[in-house]
């Protein structure tokens, strides 16, 4: 891969890798580290990619793996609170900021499938392949995640 090709992929998929990493580790500093590590791995990768989508899926898989590795290592950078981080993101509304807090408050095992399914529009089968999970597991996790988000949103409405 030439430096020019790499720069194109880094610009196109950098945000995706970052979001996957953020969903994995829930910490912006760690997510940025993972993003850089994953992109450098792409640059060093010698396999031939068939398309941009192939590159994207490869990046997502590696990001998920790196996120798991970070979890198992127990090494995390100083954690800024979610509220603190949400304050740095230019959300369209307060409602979006609150949804972010709710979603990121879900257990890690729900966050990544949710992101890949709802944001990246991958099918359950594709999410299962990307996360190396069974399709039935993905289905269950998505269902539980939806229920939890719905419940949290309802509670929030009631409280306000």
């Amino acid at each position: 891969m030439t430096a020019e090709e790499f720069a194109g992929y880094a610009k196109e998929y950098g945000d995706t890798v970052y979001r996957v990493a953020l969903n994995c580790c829930k910490n912006a500093a760690d997510a940025e580290d993972i993003m850089q590590t994953v992109l450098l791995k792409l640059f060093r990768e010698t396999k031939d990619f068939e398309s941009g989508e192939h590159v994207k899926r490869w990046l997502i898989r590696v990001a998920v793996n790196e996120g798991r590795k970070l979890h198992s290592s127990g090494w995390f950078k100083r954690r800024a609170s979610l509220e603190e981080y949400a304050g740095t993101v230019d959300f369209e509304s307060q409602e979006d900021s609150e949804l972010f807090i709710i979603v990121m408050g879900l257990p890690e095992k729900y966050r990544v499938p949710l992101y890949l399914y709802y944001y990246e529009d991958y099918t359950i089968k594709e999410v299962a392949a990307l996360c190396r999970l069974k399709e039935s597991t993905v289905q269950t996790r998505l269902q539980r995640a939806r229920e939890r988000v719905k419940k949290a949103l309802t509670k929030q409405e009631e409280d306000s």
């Binding site: 430096a3 790499f6 720069a7 880094a10 610009k11 950098g14 945000d15 890798v17 970052y18 979001r19 953020l22 997510a31 940025e32 993003m35 850089q36 992109l39 450098l40 640059f43 993101v89 230019d90 959300f91 369209e92 409602e95 979006d96 900021s97 949804l99 972010f100 979603v103 949710l114 992101y115 709802y118 944001y119 939806r146 988000v149 719905k150």
Partner: peptide, 27 residues
């Protein structure tokens, strides 16, 4: 929820400086 979720996450982005750092490293 899908629409709200997409709108919300579309604003979550990596720092352009961090992406640029990697590009410079590989150059």
């Amino acid at each position: 929820m899908e629409e709200k979720y997409k709108r919300m996450f579309s604003r979550v982005k990596a720092s352009p400086e961090k992406i640029q750092e990697v590009i410079i490293m590989t150059e």
